[in-house]
Design a protein around this nucleic acid. Structure first.
Length: 506
RNA sequence: GGUCCAUUCGUCUAUCGGUUAGGACGCCAGGUUUUCAUCCUGGAAAGAGGGGUUCGACUCCCCUAUGGACUACCA
């Protein structure tokens, strides 16, 4: 049976989308597109207590930015035929399946309060609510029917738990890991539904929704692997095994140093973003930085992320989204977790910065200039970008690398002054002023030729002159070819700066 | 503690029984250069340990070790 490929990304709106989540979304997308399938976005907000306003919008915006297009569900152009795609709005749908399980005695009602459970856990070491302990608890298996009904009529809070038969082998076929076998005895009677808010828990909701939304492949993080057998069981209990999706559990993204899952704190600690976009926490007011605002190209982030846990089998490193769609395969996803290497992320952005059309880069840079109240001629901006982009990793680096094109130095790098500004330098610079002043054709080629001639004729030291010259014009020992710089800033400005340097450097 | 998953250079990874164990990031050295950077060339750098299976194991199996995930009326 070959059903249409339909995958879903199903985050819960508890905050900004984590970079690991982004990768999961990306792999889902690549897989779907390769097979001509659909990518759905479903919001799993069954925990009303953890809902964070703005999180859903953030997720949609982030995926949009990255070029991960949603075919159906939240954020899609047209939502699709399985609406709604927010689980909190699907309450009525789940109730039916809860009742079905209850009727078939595959689930039961439990009245134990959180404190009851706590005390039990304290009492019994490694307590697990399952076949071995449910007789000790307050539920519809231990209470009489009348007792249960009267409790319900009194409006007592309850949950519905799945009833798991102990000692059964449950097999999960995983596309990345192969067959995983778990004994049902180690799975507890998970809560499927809570009366407090009338909502199911994740386990029931995701199974029901994946079934109703005709999901063909569930591609999610490895943290779900331990509960996958429970989900398989649920498909069995609901008689849906014939249309059960295939599972693929992705390896985790790990901290760059030490061990463990990559977390928000690592970003703060090590100084790199762990979110796609900036996020401002409305409670604490603190902002977490995102890749977009840090100056990354979405293509670079996608490329970088795609290789964290997958590889093409070739030695190619740079991939466009289309190439990724073509080449991606779950079989080539690695099984072990990948440490997050931020340095390599920077390198990817550098590559994209070099390879993009100059107009695109210049346009982005001009926006930065405008924010700094610098209005500059488009052609000139393009030339400047051309000259400095190779020394930049990010659009934002461009300013650091080129600010001297727009603003004359107000101070001079001390070390360089000591090393490059000698006693005879002011006199030589005066001569240089005279020389440049007499040049009408101020192109880089011409000024270079004449300046070098002058240096040779006077038997000056090339490095000595040029480095002092640079110091006067740039203020620091950096930047592109000197004659390219002065041709762009012009004769007057060049001479002005040399004069200033002679005056200011002691 | 229990269950499950994993283990090749510092990092991401290639290898699907026979290779001088390859590439990339980073690092180091040299070259290019008037500076910084880029770029080019080169270099150091790896199969967790122990048993098997096999003519031959990084590759297959087992054990140990290590790491991770999960173990909620969270997802």
């Amino acid at each position: 049976m070959n059903k249409k490929v339909r995958v879903r990304f199903a985050p819960s709106p508890t905050g900004p989308l984590h970079i690991g989540g982004v990768r999961t979304a990306l792999y889902n997308y690549l897989f779907a597109k390769q097979h001509g399938g659909d990518m759905l976005l479903r919001i799993e907000d069954t925990d009303s207590a953890r809902f964070v306003p703005g999180a859903e919008e953030y997720i949609v915006e982030a995926l949009n930015w990255l070029g991960i297009k949603i075919d159906e569900g939240i954020g899609a152009e047209k939502q699709g035929k399985h609406t709604p795609y927010r689980q909190s709005e699907r309450k009525d749908i789940y109730r039916k399946y809860v009742d079905q399980l209850l009727e078939k005695k595959l689930a039961y009602i439990a009245f134990d309060t959180p404190t009851d459970l706590e005390t039990k856990r304290a009492e019994i070491a490694n307590f697990q609510y399952d076949a071995s302990t449910r007789d000790l608890m307050t539920n519809s298996l231990t209470l009489s029917e009348e007792a249960v009904n009267s409790r319900l009529q009194n409006g007592e809070q309850y949950v519905v738990r799945i009833k798991i038969e102990p000692n059964q082998e449950i097999k999960v076929q995983d596309l990345i890991r192969g067959e995983v076998i778990v004994n049902s005895s180690v799975i507890d009677d998970k809560v499927l539904f809570k009366s407090v808010d009338g909502l199911p828990t994740y386990h029931l909701a995701n199974v029901v929704d994946d079934y109703l939304m005709e999901i063909s492949h569930v591609i999610r993080g490895e943290e779900w692997l331990p509960s996958a057998p429970l989900h398989v069981l649920l498909y069995r209990y609901l008689n849906w095994t014939d249309v059960m999706p295939q599972f693929a559990h992705l390896p985790l993204l790990l901290k760059p140093d030490g061990n463990g899952k990559l977390s928000k704190r690592d970003g703060d600690r090590l100084g790199f973003p762990v979110f796609p976009l900036n996020w401002k926490d409305s409670k604490t007011g603190e902002t977490s930085s995102g890749y977009r605002e840090a100056g990354y190209f979405p293509e670079a982030v996608v490329n970088f992320l795609s290789l964290l846990g997958w590889n093409s089998g070739t030695e190619q490193e740079i991939f466009s989204m289309d190439e990724l769609i073509n080449l991606f395969s779950l079989e080539r996803v690695s099984k072990s977790g990948a440490k997050f290497d931020y340095e390599k992320g920077k390198w990817f952005n550098h590559k994209y910065l070099q390879n993009k059309p100059i107009d695109e880069i210049a346009d982005l840079f001009q926006h930065i200039l405008i924010q700094k109240d610098i209005i500059e001629d488009w052609e000139k901006v393009k030339k400047i970008v051309e000259l400095v982009r190779e020394r930049a990793n990010f659009i934002t680096d461009l300013w650091v690398q080129s600010s001297f094109f727009f603003v004359a130095p107000i101070s001079y790098d001390e070390k360089t002054v000591q090393k490059r500004w000698k006693a005879e330098t002011p006199r030589q610079m005066e001569e240089l002023i005279d020389l440049l002043n007499a040049i009408d054709d101020f192109t880089a080629e011409n000024t270079e030729e004449l300046t070098k001639k002058w240096i040779a004729e006077n038997e000056y030291n090339m490095g000595g002159i040029m480095n002092a010259f640079r110091l006067a014009i740039v203020g620091e020992p950096k930047g592109p070819h000197m004659f390219d710089i002065i041709s762009l800033i012009g004769k007057e400005e060049t001479i002005e700066r040399i004069k200033n340097a002679i005056k200011l450097i002691v």
